[in-house]
């Protein structure tokens, strides 16, 4: 690895809050993906007889839900979908946005204008509205949610990377390469994207955080992962109907989990931004 990468790594490790955020993410992933291996629960069949149990009752450390699922086990299952969708959609959005923005910024001229008007259009239509309409047309599954959320979220990274690409396209090493007959694929693939990597990586972490929040909103609006699957947002909005019954254990754990994971990804993003020595880019 290059020494530049080394020093980014070192600067990141000096960022205490960022390292803590990374630890939180690692623990949450372990909880959601390894947890079920050690803590078996039935998250498919409902059990009305064991519904709405308070924490500690009948060996349910966090109680049970309104249809009798073990809350702790459900937190693992729901977290899996939230993290899967958030991570995959965030990365998908960053990937599309990076390529789109790099090409637009490098090409300039009419191609840039066309590509950026498309981005403007996408940004103008609020994602939540588009998701609601989409939700009435297609039946959501984890895969569908990844694609849909990814497709509505690539616009901001596209804008950021385009701005970066515009400046990088005029760097002397790109000019020299062009003078030698280097093509645009090489310019974008070898020079522009690698040098915009800081912006891309930092933005990716923010994208993942936003995607996880967006999943929660989508679930709240009733378009989340279908039963018996769930995600943290779905658990939360389900629990909210029981607010006045005092069933706090259906609300607090998923709520805290969402806040924790989004907070952690943002802190990591901040630490990475410092580590890459980037300046603020519209966020």
């Amino acid at each position: 690895m290059s020494t530049a990468t080394d020093s980014v790594y070192r600067r990141f490790l000096r960022h205490r809050l960022g390292v803590a955020g990374l630890a939180v993410i690692v623990l949450l992933f372990a909880f959601c993906f390894l947890g079920p291996v050690f803590y078996h629960t039935n998250q498919v069949e409902t059990n009305i007889l064991a519904a709405n149990l308070a924490p500690g009752v009948q060996g349910h450390p966090l109680g049970t839900t309104d249809v009798g699922f073990d809350e702790l086990g459900r937190l693992m299952v729901g977290g899996r979908s939230s993290l899967e969708i958030g991570l995959a959609a965030g990365l998908l959005a960053t990937g599309i946005g990076t390529i789109w923005g790099a090409v637009a910024g490098y090409a300039g001229g009419w191609l840039d204008a066309v590509m950026m008007r498309i981005v403007d259009t996408g940004i103008a239509i609020p994602a939540l509205f588009l998701l609601l309409v989409a939700g009435t047309i297609v039946r959501p599954t984890v895969g569908v949610l990844i694609v849909v959320i990814g497709v509505v979220s690539w616009l901001v990274p596209a804008r950021l990377v385009r701005a970066e690409s515009l400046t990088l396209a005029n760097r002397e090493y790109v000019l020299t390469m062009k003078a030698l007959g280097g093509g645009s694929t090489r310019a974008i693939g070898r020079h522009i994207v690698p040098n915009a990597i800081g912006t891309v990586v930092v933005n990716a972490t923010f994208q993942v955080a936003d995607a996880i929040l967006l999943v929660a909103y989508v679930s709240f609006l009733g378009l989340g992962v279908p039963f018996p699957g769930t995600d943290w947002g779905g658990m939360l909005s389900n629990g909210i109907s029981y607010t006045y019954d005092g069933y706090w254990w259906m609300i607090v754990p998923p709520g805290v989990a969402i806040i924790l994971v989004v907070f952690a990804f943002n802190v990591i993003g901040d630490a990475l931004r410092d580590a890459f020595e980037l300046r603020l880019e519209g966020r």
Partner: peptide, 22 residues
């Protein structure tokens, strides 16, 4: 043009940006 470009070279001013840092 591509073949001819082989015979041409360019050296620019700014040492900080004349080589790709990565």
């Amino acid at each position: 043009l591509q073949r001819l470009r082989r015979s041409c070279a360019l050296v620019l001013q700014d040492p900080a940006s004349s080589l790709d840092p990565r």
